[in-house]
Amino acid sequence: MHRLANPTRFLRLCNMVKPWAMAITLLCLATGLYFSLFKSPPDYQQSDTVRIMYVHVPAAWMAMFCYSAMALSSAAALIWGHLVAQLIAKATAPIGASFTFLALITGSLWGKPMWGTWWVWDARLTSVLILFFLYLGFIVLHDAFDDTSRGARAASILAVVGAVNVPIIKFSVDWWNTLHQPASVVKLDGPAIHSSMLVPLLLMACGYTGFYLWMLIVRMRAEFNSNKIRAIRIRQANR
């Protein structure tokens, strides 16, 4: 892990991974959309609204995955002071926030016809809303200080503290009774989704993961550039 803390080595890895991430994203999203909209059957209870699952569930998974990535790299940045780790967290935040927003909106569009309401304050929905605010807090804190390293440290601490929310989201549907149904795919006795519906779900999830990687790589390059720009500006000012 520490080998990758070298920016040059990290960017070289990025260049290697980028075409693969792009290919996986485009391939999985194209086939995933085809299966979600055309090939997969309507659900026996929920009819065609089950198709919303194929954009809602991967977005929710990515919301939690991105937060975990952000919290872990924030912790690494706090402990070892690696610039790469700090920038991974910074580059992940807006992507994760977008996925969380998507999970909330598509969930609402699914809840209205099936549950009969756009929103309820149950444990699952509320904890995901808190996740969204944690992302926003991270982004705001990062820019809140004139001294960028202080902003980065404050945001990293928030990310690590907020990580308690991730298991709460995951297990909220088991620990408390909620309107939201329990997990279907990640459970001990195997998925409760028929294979004809699991295929588009997993394809879309692959596509979303590839998309995150791709966007992370683009944003990492941009973050490294702005870091260099800042360094040059400071040097110019001190001259």
């Binding site: 309507p42 026996y44 279907s184 409760a192």
Partner: peptide, 18 residues
């Protein structure tokens, strides 16, 4: 004053359910 439906975690096509 309000009734909401709760659904379970099972998803399958109609034919399979039957």
């Amino acid at each position: 004053t309000e009734v909401l439906a709760k659904h379970d975690e099972n998803y399958m096509p109609k034919e399979i359910a039957e």
